[in-house]
Simulated assay, not measured.
Amino acid sequence: MIKKGFIVSCLFFLSITLVKAQEGKVEVVKDSLISLLQEYRAYYAINPTTSKVVSLEPKTIDKSRASRVKVRGFRVQIFSGSNRNEATNVQNSFIRQNPDVGAYLDYVEPNYRVKVGDFTSRSQATDYMRQLRGTYRNVFVFVEDVWTWQ
């Protein structure tokens, strides 16, 4: 019985000693490139480091007082090919079905590309891309300058 008490007492004191050994200061060493990356992401509104109040309500903009500005954002490509007539047809068809979404035709040699939408977040563009996958083939999200209201 005395032997069990002695062993339990030793284990108890040993555990107290180990807990005290974990006291101390923690020093965080941060690479200088992390600060540059955070500033870059904040500038282009990619997971900004500054805290913002986020509202789940839809944002309403008084367009008579607002101005359109270009910001870094995302578009969904719905067509890429060398035939200009086919690209124009895809663009016009999309505009007829979605008059409230912008459709843009670009030419980067040797292909014409039709990209749609002006999204400020990748998640919005990805959600829209998933909606379009059943209608268009080779649908991708691209980072580029987009129009938004401010």
Rank of each mutant, 00 (worst) to 15 (best):
45 A>N: 14
94 F>M: 06
55 S>A: 09
48 P>L: 09
105 L>P: 05
65 R>K: 15
74 F>I: 02
117 G>A: 11
116 V>A: 05
116 V>T: 07
90 V>P: 04
57 E>G: 01
68 R>K: 13
116 V>N: 05
101 V>W: 06
62 D>G: 06
63 K>L: 11
120 T>F: 13
83 N>H: 03
86 E>P: 01
45 A>E: 14
56 L>M: 14
107 Y>A: 03
68 R>L: 11
121 S>I: 08
71 V>I: 14
59 K>E: 15
63 K>T: 15
87 A>D: 02
73 G>D: 07
94 F>D: 06
80 S>E: 08
68 R>G: 05
91 Q>S: 10
52 K>H: 12
102 G>K: 12
99 P>H: 03
79 F>L: 03
75 R>V: 12
103 A>V: 02
76 V>G: 06
101 V>N: 04
85 N>Y: 06
58 P>G: 08
72 R>M: 10
45 A>P: 00
67 S>F: 14
78 I>L: 07
111 N>D: 08
65 R>C: 05
81 G>Q: 05
83 N>P: 00
53 V>S: 13
75 R>A: 13
96 R>Y: 00
104 Y>F: 13
46 I>T: 08
75 R>G: 04
74 F>Q: 00
73 G>N: 07
75 R>W: 09
107 Y>C: 00
114 V>P: 00
57 E>W: 07
73 G>Y: 12
105 L>G: 04
77 Q>L: 06
80 S>Y: 09
119 F>T: 03
97 Q>A: 15
103 A>E: 04
117 G>Y: 11
73 G>Q: 03
83 N>F: 03
108 V>S: 06
108 V>P: 00
78 I>F: 10
94 F>A: 03
61 I>D: 05
93 S>W: 00
75 R>Q: 15
75 R>S: 10
100 D>C: 00
110 P>I: 04
49 T>V: 11
70 K>D: 08
96 R>W: 00
112 Y>C: 01
100 D>N: 13
108 V>G: 00
82 S>I: 09
87 A>P: 02
109 E>A: 11
74 F>S: 03
112 Y>S: 02
121 S>W: 12
78 I>H: 05
66 A>E: 02
99 P>T: 02
107 Y>R: 03
104 Y>S: 04
65 R>D: 04
111 N>R: 10
94 F>R: 02
45 A>S: 13
57 E>N: 11
113 R>D: 05
89 N>E: 08
69 V>F: 08
59 K>S: 13
105 L>S: 04
62 D>V: 09
79 F>S: 04
72 R>F: 10
83 N>A: 05
100 D>M: 10
101 V>A: 04
62 D>K: 09
105 L>N: 01
71 V>W: 10
90 V>K: 01
120 T>A: 13
61 I>N: 06
100 D>W: 03
111 N>T: 07
89 N>K: 11
79 F>H: 02
119 F>G: 01
105 L>D: 03
47 N>I: 07
70 K>Q: 11
55 S>L: 12
101 V>R: 05
101 V>Q: 08
63 K>P: 02
80 S>R: 14
86 E>K: 06
86 E>A: 08
108 V>W: 07
94 F>I: 07
88 T>Q: 09
103 A>C: 07
61 I>H: 06
66 A>C: 08
69 V>L: 09
54 V>Y: 15
50 T>L: 10
119 F>D: 02
